[in-house]
């Protein structure tokens, strides 16, 4: 249970971290479209990766959420 709590906290931290960096010049430099990846503008491909990572973190979150497994309606 303690490990799950720790993993869940890591997931929360990772989600918050990804959200914060999205709104910095690291992901959305104003007026800059390069470097492109496969012809896709910089802010689009980086934010696409962030979106996928957020969904992956949510998936991991479903496995490590400390409360979920103990719910009686899951049994």
């Amino acid at each position: 249970m303690e490990k799950k709590k720790l993993y869940w906290k890591i997931c929360c931290f990772a989600a918050v971290f990804l959200c914060i960096i999205t709104y910095t010049p690291l992901i959305i430099p104003q007026g800059v479209a390069k470097p492109m990846l496969g012809g896709v503008p910089y802010s689009l491909w980086t934010s696409f990766i962030i979106t996928v990572l957020l969904v992956v973190i949510t998936f991991i979150g479903t496995r490590v959420h400390p409360g979920m497994q103990n719910e009686e309606d899951d049994l």
């Binding site: 989600a15 959200c19 959305i28 934010s47 962030i50 979106t51 957020l54 969904v55 949510t58």
Partner: peptide, 12 residues
């Protein structure tokens, strides 16, 4: 970023 990133965070 307006919608997809926000939705990604929203599901969390």
């Amino acid at each position: 970023i307006f919608l997809a990133v926000s939705d990604g965070a929203m599901v969390f």
